[in-house]
Design a protein around this nucleic acid. Structure first.
Lengths: 226, 226
DNA sequence: TTAAAAACAGGTATTTATACCTGCTTTCAT
DNA sequence: ATGAAAGCAGGTATAAATACCTGTTTTTAA
């Protein structure tokens, strides 16, 4: 490997992005050649580049995504499809075992919590770039726990499944404090239908009530907090 | 003013803190002399210093605060009480008008959103240090809107106030998916009392239902997502 | 030492959410 | 082309939340 490792940053918080850039630039073997604040422009902008990054650092909680849905996970998927040679490291503010596992499954090459040590970032980048992946102890533990949980639970109950489009849509409206009737009116549905989706949501997420649904939504980037 | 402006950082995310430090250190007239990851140690540690910072940058969403409650706001209040000569700039990931106004009211000298421009940080620091305060256009607008709202509403309803300890406690349990009866049992209260607290919460936060309460709680660091 | 606010708890109502059931289309992958 | 899942929508119930009253006691701050 000749030359520096080229880094791309996808992170909506300018200050964090700049700080990250400053940290990364302190290492002589790394250079940041690409930055983006939103997910949905990343692919197009990358295609315009003459040289693409070796490693992309993608913020998981990517929204403000008002209409265009492009979470960190979706950026990851899009990157993998369009630029399979790019390695992807997910940055996240929190550490949700279930979600980490999902991301690794979806193809991310590494995962970093935002309060990790800067040295760990460097290690992750070089590891991903040379070995193709990076897993630290915490992440490994998360994945193992999650796999264990899955194999344990799958035999008994239908286990945790993906939410459908409609379910995600309704979950977002629930987070917006809308009642069943209001959601039904907004989506031109019968309240009975919305009721059904609510029940599916409770079942699939394992939540007990709206409070649990909202927490789940925020945890998984379906709703925003800021 | 001779010498550099001494900065203190209170921010739980190590990566963000380091990045911030890197950004700040790029300016020759600024030096970071103090760092803390949690709120509750700040005062004691400051007292041990020979020279205290001129300006403290405090992260609003300071938790993990399991038992010891020390949000960015509380750190601010404690700082003002113990070190009235220190200027305080609040850092926040989000931009909640109502909350900004509250913070300014509680004595903070400046407010910055985390996705602001690095130059803005520098400007805020020097402004706070020399002029004693810093308000940018966005913040000003927020305060104005909020004051406008208050004077309009105050005549009718008791207006937006602080949450009490009990209310915070109950809000956390609501986020834990507990029902009114369960909360009552856990806290050895009558469900009627819990009911009253719930209503106060809805009124004070402006939330319409549990969904709104949970979002509010997470926004304000009263509940955690990970 | 007062007045205000917080915390407590009773009443009564209505609205919403939750939990099931059923059945009917449509979409989609095998 | 056949079954599975998604989406739709009806019924029926109960549980829970929300919205108001009222009042007492305790805590807190002026």
């Amino acid at each position: 490997m000749t030359g520096k490792v080229r880094i791309g940053l996808v992170e909506d918080q300018l200050l964090f992005r700049q700080g990250m850039k400053a940290i990364l630039s302190a290492w002589p073997d790394i250079e940041v050649i690409f930055e983006a604040a939103e997910g949905y422009t990343v692919i197009d902008r990358l295609k315009e580049l003459e040289v693409i990054p070796h490693v992309m650092l993608v913020d998981l909680s990517l929204p403000p995504n008002g209409q265009k849905e492009f979470s960190g996970k979706e950026v990851t998927v899009a990157l993998l499809k369009n630029f399979p040679e790019i390695k992807i490291i997910i940055l996240s503010a929190h550490e949700d075992e279930n979600f980490i596992a999902q991301l690794i499954e979806s193809g991310a090459h590494g995962y970093l919590v935002k309060d990790c040590d800067p040295d760990e970032v460097h290690e992750a980048i070089t590891s991903v770039n040379t070995k193709g992946s990076y897993i630290n102890v915490r992440t490994l533990k998360a994945i193992q726990n999650n796999i264990g949980r899955k194999t344990k639970v799958r035999g008994i109950s239908p286990a945790v499944e993906q939410l459908t489009k409609r379910e995600v849509e309704i979950l977002q409206l629930i987070c917006d404090q809308m009642t069943t009737d209001e959601i039904a009116e907004k989506l031109f549905l019968s309240p009975k239908t919305v009721n059904g989706h609510r029940n599916s949501l409770l079942e699939k997420t394992g939540a007990k009530n709206v409070a649990g649904l909202v927490v789940y939504a925020i945890k998984n980037g379906i709703a925003e907090v800021s």
